[in-house]
């Protein structure tokens, strides 16, 4: 029975050690953060934002190995300031809000590019499809506050966004740019 204490200590140690070793996660200041996208409509750009998203971010520029992001986006919170278009986006041939209300982005590898710039490779799950997406970002940290600004781009048809007749990019372009601006604290 005297080993129980030792076993417990070891088990707890194994569970807690990574958490203790890695830096604590950052908390998003929602009011000053933004997840946006730019798509094209008949060759003209239009902008939108996902009003609701959250992320579990562990980041330390000196410990990239233990740094990782897990972002969850409420796809139904998309707002392009156009009720007609937002309504169309909810349809099955577009984002299919009823079946796929959430998207996830999980980083698999983060590397430094120098000058506060980084490249995060990750897997984006959108509309039930998982594909690799690369996020390039800058990270500026000051004591307990950090600012992250990133960009990524994807092809909407890789995620079955705009199926059937819409899969030709003639009226609604295939390339979509994502932009993220986060204000963080810990």
């Amino acid at each position: 029975m005297k080993y129980v204490g030792l076993v417990l200590t070891l088990v707890c140690g194994f569970i807690l050690a990574p958490a203790l070793l890695a830096a604590p996660p950052w908390t998003i200041n929602q009011a000053h953060s933004r997840l946006g996208f730019i798509a094209t409509w008949q060759e003209s750009e239009f902008k939108g934002v996902f009003k609701k998203f959250d992320a579990h971010l562990v980041f330390d520029g000196k410990d990239l190995e233990h740094s990782h992001f897990k972002v969850t986006v409420d796809v139904t919170s998309a707002d392009t300031q156009s009720p007609d278009r937002d309504e169309a986006m909810a349809r099955p041939e577009w984002f299919f809000h009823a079946n796929y209300p959430r998207a996830h982005f999980i980083t698999t590898n983060i590397q430094a590019l120098g000058n506060n710039r980084y490249l995060a490779e990750g897997q984006l799950t959108l509309k039930g499809t998982t594909r690799p997406v690369t996020l390039s970002f800058s990270w500026r940290e000051n004591e307990r506050v950090a600012h992250m600004q990133g960009k990524a781009s994807l092809k909407r048809t890789d995620f079955r966004i705009g199926e059937g007749e819409w899969s030709s990019g003639e009226m609604i372009g295939l390339d979509v740019k994502l932009s993220v601006k986060l204000c963080l604290s810990r």
Binding site: Q42, E43, S82, R85
Partner: peptide, 13 residues
């Protein structure tokens, strides 16, 4: 008002 961009005849926005 509907926030639709328009590129007239695909020539100019």
């Amino acid at each position: 008002a509907a926030n639709f961009p328009l590129k007239v005849f695909r020539l100019f926005t």
